[in-house]
C-alpha cells in the first residue's frame, strides 16, 4: 500500500521534473500577483506591512489553485486514472499520494519563495519564519481540498472556472488562520494559536479528504 503511494509520488515528481515549465509558471504567477498589489494600492511602507500577510496568502492560494486543473487531467486523458481505479492499491491511498505530490510541486516552492515577497513588503525578518511555517502547514490543506474539487470537475466543460467557484469558499478558513498567524505575530501576540488550528485542519483534511477525492474520482470515471 505504501509502496503504491511511493510509486505515485515518484512518478508525479518525475513528470513535473520533465515539465519544469509548468512548475515555474505557477511560481511566477505567485510572484507577479504579489507584486501587483503595491502598484494598485501604493507603496506606503506601513500600509504594505499591514497587508503583506493577507496578500501573500491570497497569492499563494490562487497559485496553488491554478495548478489543480492539471492534477488529474493528464491521467484522465490517457487512461492511467482508470488503471489506478482498477488497481489493487486502495483509491484513497492513490488520491492522498497525488495530493501530496501536488503539494510538493505547487505548495513547497511557495514556502521557499515567500520570504522574498515578504522582503518586498518590508515585513520584519522576525516574521519570515512564522510566514513560512504557516504556509508549510496550510498549503497541504489547500492541495487536499483542491484535489476534491479537481476530481469533481474532471473532464467538464469550463472546468477551470468552475473549480475556483467550488474550491475558493472552502479555502476561507485556511486563509484566515494562515494570514492571522502572521498578523498576530506582527502584533507581538504570537501566532501559535492560529498555527495549531491550521495543524488541526491539516490533520482533519489528511484524514477525510482522500476518501472524498476517491469518491469523486469514482463518480467522474463512471
Amino acid at each position: 500500500m505504501l509502496a503504491a503511494a511511493r510509486c505515485v509520488v515518484y512518478r508525479d515528481l518525475l513528470l513535473a521534473l520533465r515539465r519544469r515549465g509548468d512548475v515555474a509558471v505557477a511560481l511566477l504567477f505567485f510572484v507577479i500577483v504579489a507584486s501587483l498589489f503595491p502598484l494598485g494600492i501604493g507603496a506606503e511602507p506601513n500600509l504594505l506591512r499591514s497587508i503583506a500577510p493577507g496578500v501573500i496568502w491570497v497569492a499563494a492560494l490562487l497559485s496553488s489553485m491554478l495548478s489543480l486543473g492539471r492534477l488529474f487531467a493528464a491521467d484522465y486523458d490517457d487512461g492511467t486514472l482508470e488503471q489506478m481505479l482498477l488497481g489493487a492499491a486502495p483509491l484513497g491511498v492513490v488520491a492522498a499520494a497525488k495530493a501530496f505530490a501536488h503539494w510538493l510541486v505547487a505548495g513547497l516552492p511557495l514556502v521557499a519563495i515567500a520570504p522574498l515577497i515578504a522582503l518586498q513588503y518590508d515585513l520584519g525578518a522576525g516574521l519570515w519564519g512564522i510566514l513560512a511555517l504557516s504556509l508549510l502547514v496550510g498549503t497541504p490543506v489547500l492541495s487536499l481540498l483542491g484535489a476534491v474539487g479537481a476530481a469533481l470537475t474532471l473532464g467538464l466543460r469550463g472546468g477551470g472556472v468552475l473549480l475556483s467557484l467550488l474550491v475558493l469558499p472552502l479555502y476561507v478558513p485556511v486563509l484566515i488562520m494562515g494570514a492571522g498567524a502572521v498578523e498576530m505575530a506582527a502584533a507581538g501576540l504570537g501566532g501559535g494559536g492560529q498555527l495549531l488550528v491550521l495543524g488541526a485542519m491539516l490533520v482533519l483534511a489528511a484524514a477525510f479528504a482522500p476518501w472524498a477525492i476517491a469518491a469523486a474520482l469514482r463518480i467522474s470515471l463512471e
Binding site: 481540498l145 476534491v148 469533481l152 467550488l166 469558499p169 472552502l170 478558513p173 477525510f208 472524498a212 469518491a215 469523486a216 463518480i219 467522474s220
Partner: peptide
C-alpha cells in the same frame, strides 16, 4: 458529484 460537494461543504 454534487452530493460529494454538499457533504464536503456541510463539514466545512
Amino acid at each position: 458529484a454534487a452530493a460529494v460537494l454538499a457533504v464536503v461543504g456541510v463539514v466545512n
